[in-house]
């Protein structure tokens, strides 16, 4: 057990060192991109929009923008790190070693979560220049961001296991993750949508995360909190089990 914890710490150290070493690619871009969101959507366009769900537009979109950066960074950290490890074959260092697969998975997910949370903290810091941030429930804010980050880190891991070339690690973020995030109620309340599109939106898991997170900040959500937590929990258990199954069978890693 003690030895496995040392192994886990080594994987985490390796992962954190990796994204700090390339901070210009990992930590700086979300800071710049999200600053632009605050300037353009929050200040310039937001002032024209006025209120959304009885809150100033910039205050309404801030939780969604933070969540967007957490989702993107948790996912991309694991997908690029694990795929690089496969591509450069240094994943073999771990496969040859006695580290149990569950610790390998926890190490990579931990790396993705730490980058997601760090990016979230950076974007939250930037938001303070644009909006007086109110926190309705600290516990909800922290738990939702932690669970969401875990879920998307798991998604990135599974993507990396199946990826055979570098193109494969950008297909899911570009064609699935980004549209789902934009349509997940980051910039609007779904009550603005016609009833049919409201029902369609309910099939988008990101909607639940954004709304639960927004509840933590503003005390407002399109979705009941317990439903959001249940959905996130189900996805985490399902993806974690699948990722561990892939590691145990050596899918994409062993011939």
């Amino acid at each position: 057990m003690q030895e496995n914890l040392v192994a886990l710490q080594s994987i985490l150290t390796k992962e954190v060192t990796r994204y700090f070493r390339i901070w210009i690619q990992t930590l700086l871009p979300p800071a710049i991109t999200m600053s632009l969101y605050f300037v353009i959507f929050g200040n310039l366009i937001g002032e024209k929009i006025g209120q959304m769900d009885d809150k100033p537009y910039i205050a309404y979109i801030t939780p969604g923008i933070i969540m967007m950066s957490v989702i993107t960074n948790s996912y991309s950290n694991v997908v690029s790190s694990f795929f690089s490890a496969k591509f450069q074959r240094h994943i073999e260092e771990l496969l040859v070693s006695p580290v149990p697969n569950i610790y390998i998975l926890l190490g990579y997910i931990g790396g993705g979560v730490s980058r997601g949370l760090l990016t979230g903290a950076i974007v939250t810091g930037i938001s303070l220049f644009f909006v007086d941030l109110e926190i309705h429930n600290w516990f909800v804010v922290f738990v939702v961001i932690l669970l969401t980050s875990t879920l998307f880190a798991l998604g990135g891991f599974i993507n990396a296991v199946f990826a055979k070339k570098f193109d494969d690690i950008s297909i899911v973020p570009t064609f699935i993750l980004t549209p789902l995030t934009y349509l997940g109620g980051v910039f609007y309340t779904i009550s603005l949508l016609p009833e049919f599109w409201q029902k369609v939106s309910m099939a988008n898991p990101i909607l639940y995360m954004v709304n639960a997170f927004r509840y933590g900040f503003l005390g407002r959500s399109d979705i009941a909190l317990e439903v959001a937590f249940t959905i996130i929990g189900i996805f985490i258990v399902a993806l974690f089990s699948f990722a561990l199954y892939l590691l145990n069978t050596g899918k994409g890693l062993k011939s």
């Binding site: 003690q2 040392v6 080594s10 994987i11 150290t13 450069q88 006695p98 580290v99």
Partner: peptide
Amino acid sequence: QFETPLQIVVNQAGYYG
């Protein structure tokens, strides 16, 4: 290829506890 020899061998030791 981006890690140093020291990082590589110390991490490897970590994988063995």
